[in-house]
C-alpha cells in the first residue's frame, strides 16, 4: 500500500466542467478531429495533479487510442512526465501528492483497480535504464515471479523460460543476449539495458506501455533501434511516449499532445501538430522558436 493516499478520482470527478482554461477547451477537449477508427484505451478527463501546494497539471483531458503511439511533447517542466505517471498511478509514490479528475482504463475508473493490477496492465519504462543488479534472465522474469500466472500461483520453470525468451524477442534483444542470460544485466551496453527494461516491462503482457523519454540517454544508433521497436510493438500494445525530441515524436507517433506549463495546449494527429498546428504556442514550439 502506498503511503500517499490520493483521493479516489471518482469522488470528485470533474467538479466544475466549465472551469477548464479556455486555451485548452478549443483543441484539447480530448476529441480532436480524428478519424477515430481505433477504440479508446485510456481516457483522462479534467485531470489536475498537485505536489503539495504546487499544481503540476491543470485540467488535462486526453484520449489514448488502442494500438496507436501517442507522444507527449513540450519543454522541460511542462508536466508531460507527470501526466504519464498518473496513467499507471506511479505518482502515488510521491508524498503529499494529490490527483483530481478521472482516468478510465477500458471504460473503468483507474482507481477502482488494485494498484498492482493497474501497473501490471499499464507497464512503464523510465528515462534512465534501471535494470536490477540481477542476471538478465532474472530481470525479465521478475514481474512474472511476483505477479504469478493468470490462473494464480507461481509460474513453472518452463513457463518462465518461454516467457523470458518471448519478451526478449519482442524487445529485439534475444539474439544479443541469448548466450549470456545468466550474466549481470550491468554487463550490457546502455542501449541494450534500455531494451532489457522494455523486455522486463513486456514480460507481464501489459496492454499499455508508457515510455518516459526512453532514448534521452542513448546514442543515435541505440535510439533508432528503440524507435523501430516502438513501431513493431504497437500492433500488440498501446504506447504512450514522452519525449523532448520533436523529430522522434514526428517519426514514431500517430498522435501528439503538446504540453505547456501543466496544460495540454493541443492534441491531434501527429502530422497536423507539426505541419498545421491550431495554436500559436504549438507552432512556436515545433518551429523551434522557444523551448
Amino acid at each position: 500500500m502506498s503511503p500517499a493516499k490520493p483521493m479516489p478520482a471518482s469522488a470528485q470527478q470533474a467538479p466544475e466542467p466549465d472551469m477548464a482554461p479556455p486555451s485548452v477547451n478549443m483543441a484539447a477537449s480530448g476529441e480532436p478531429n480524428l478519424a477515430a477508427e481505433s477504440a479508446t484505451k485510456i481516457s483522462a478527463t479534467d485531470l489536475n495533479f498537485h505536489y503539495g501546494s504546487f499544481q503540476a497539471l491543470h485540467g488535462i483531458s486526453m484520449k489514448i487510442f488502442e494500438n496507436r503511439v501517442t507522444a507527449c511533447i513540450g519543454p522541460s517542466g511542462c508536466g508531460k512526465s507527470t501526466f504519464l505517471r498518473t496513467l499507471n498511478r506511479m505518482n502515488e509514490t510521491v508524498r503529499h501528492s494529490r490527483v483530481e479528475g478521472e482516468i478510465l482504463l477500458d471504460g473503468q475508473n483507474l482507481h477502482s483497480f488494485e494498484v498492482s493490477e493497474v501497473r501490471r496492465r499499464v507497464g512503464m519504462v523510465f528515462q534512465r535504464s534501471n535494470p536490477f543488479p540481477k542476471s538478465i534472465f532474472d530481470n525479465v522474469a521478475y514481474g512474472l515471479r511476483i505477479n504469478g500466472v493468470p490462473g494464480g500461483g507461481s509460474p513453472s520453470r518452463g513457463e518462465l523460460r518461454d516467457a523470458v525468451e518471448h519478451s526478449l524477442r519482442r524487445a529485439a534483444l534475444w539474439d544479443e543476449v541469448k548466450d549470456k542470460l545468466h550474466q549481470s544485466a550491468y554487463s550490457l551496453s546502455g542501449g541494450q539495458q534500455q531494451r532489457l527494461c522494455i523486455a522486463r516491462a513486456l514480460a507481464v503482457n501489459p496492454e499499455v506501455l508508457l515510455l518516459d523519454e526512453p532514448c534521452s540517454a542513448l546514442d543515435p544508433i541505440a535510439t533508432t533501434k528503440i524507435e523501430d521497436l516502438i513501431f513493431h510493438l504497437k500492433s500488440s500494445c498501446t504506447i504512450v511516449i514522452v519525449t523532448h525530441n520533436m523529430q522522434q515524436a514526428a517519426r514514431v507517433a500517430d498522435y501528439t499532445g503538446f504540453f505547456l506549463l501543466g496544460r495540454l495546449i493541443e492534441f491531434d494527429e501527429t502530422p497536423l501538430i507539426f505541419k498545421n498546428p491550431a495554436q500559436k504556442e504549438t507552432e512556436d514550439y515545433v518551429t523551434g522558436r522557444f523551448g
Partner: peptide, 10 residues
C-alpha cells in the same frame, strides 16, 4: 474478482 494470489501478496 481479485485472485487469491493477489490477496496473498497484499
Amino acid at each position: 474478482s481479485p485472485s487469491l494470489h493477489l490477496l496473498r501478496r497484499k
